[in-house]
Nucleic acid binder design. Structure first.
Length: 372
DNA sequence: TGGGGTTAT
DNA sequence: ATAACCC
């Protein structure tokens, strides 16, 4: 078994460990799934919200809510009107700006990375951590220290004892992997192992996820979007400027530089369920160079590029009706390939004087003692 | 349905 | 560039 999943039960943090029986390539993977994550961030930001039914609103939707609200019948992705009807006391906070959620999300990932660097993100509120190495090392140490002290707690299927016999019996049936177990006849399995064990392990087998845990690392793209009605070029340009300004701040903080920019639109009332169109182009190199500290020099040329993409998709001489605009930076590259020990490594271009004098200046980056 | 993300084609 | 998937 590779990854396994179990239902979250009343806890905001769920850890599941599953180690397969009878496999020498067992892995230990922890799935950390934060429930109602946005609502929790809001309650941390404003503790007065604790204890009240709280919903996080994006446009006319309650995208998530805390347990108090759930008890009163509010569901994820419920209409604001329906939610208010169900629960008139519902407190709503606007969650359209994901900045704080994103920051907290990466804090969680970074915390988990202290246990093992193999952490895969799934959305903002789920992480998979491959703890195989850590567990193996601990078991080795425990065994050499004090063999009798070896106890395991949690959801663990042991190789040698509680699962050994079952493993043998499964082998006799030709079942050596969880996949075999999944496709095996339930009725025969129940006769062989008893209904309880059979049903339990077969359910476990359906929690399987065969894929390795792939470390996510830093994001591959940054995007900002807003759904709203747009029927003129001026409206589009204003929104694009707004989205771009936020994006530039994010890119600035990240340190890497995007080499591709993309504009995404959604047209009104197209029948299609998935109804987005996009145009992308390389970011002109002279703009990339200016990316980093100050945003004002890059705003205007960037907006020009984006408006060209816009006019490439939308015939502005004809009436149009859009319901979403999104700007995405991708194809991110490390800003320099300078090596440690070279002067370039410690210097980063600065706009503090270039905007005035046109000359290049440099600023010392934050460094760590171990660099020296 | 929002406001994000990823990978495959 | 889009599709298809995840949350």
């Amino acid at each position: 078994m590779e990854r396994a999943e179990a239902g979250a039960a009343g806890s905001s943090l769920v850890h599941d460990q599953v180690v397969p029986a009878g496999s020498s390539s067992s892995r230990v993977i922890v799935h950390v799934d934060l429930d109602c994550f946005y609502a929790q961030v809001e309650m941390i930001s404003n503790p007065e919200l604790k204890g009240k039914p709280l919903g996080v609103q994006q446009k006319y939707l309650v995208v998530t809510c805390n347990y108090e609200a759930r008890k009163l019948g509010v569901k994820k992705l419920m209409n604001v009107r329906d939610a208010k009807e169900k629960c008139p006391q519902l407190v709503l906070v606007n969650g359209e700006d994901l900045t704080r959620y994103r920051e907290m999300s990466y804090k969680v990932t970074e915390l988990l990375e202290e246990f093992s660097p193999i952490v895969e993100r799934l959305g903002f509120d789920e992480n998979f951590v491959d703890l195989t190495e850590m567990v193996e090392k601990r078991l080795e140490q425990l065994q050499s220290d004090e063999p009798s002290a070896l106890t395991v707690s949690g959801h663990v299927y042991d190789n040698q004892r509680i699962g050994y016999k079952t493993t043998k019996r499964l082998e006799a049936l030709g079942i050596s992997s969880v996949r075999d177990l999944q496709t095996f006849s339930s009725k025969i399995l129940e006769k062989e192992l008893g209904i309880s064990v059979a049903q339990r392990i077969q359910k476990l087998s359906f929690g399987e996820d065969n894929s390795p845990v792939t470390p996510s690392g830093p994001p591959q793209s940054f995007s900002e979007e807003d759904s709203f009605k747009c029927s003129s070029e001026v409206e589009a340009k204003n929104k694009i400027e707004e989205l771009l300004a936020s994006l530039l701040n994010r890119v600035c903080q990240d340190g890497r530089k995007p080499h591709t920019i993309r504009l995404i639109i959604r047209r009104y009332s197209s029948e299609k369920h998935y109804n987005r169109e996009s145009r992308q182009c390389p970011i002109p190199s002279h703009i990339i160079q200016k990316l980093g500290i100050g945003n004002y020099d890059v705003m205007t040329p960037m907006v020009d590029v984006l408006m060209k993409l816009f006019r490439n998709m939308v015939n502005v001489k004809m009436p149009f009706h859009l319901t979403l605009l999104s700007v995405c930076f991708c194809n991110l590259k490390a800003l320099n390939t300078a090596k440690k020990g070279t002067i370039d490594y410690y210097l980063t271009p600065s706009l503090s004087t270039t905007s005035r004098s046109g000359k290049h200046s440099f600023k010392m980056k934050d460094t760590h003692m171990e660099d020296f």
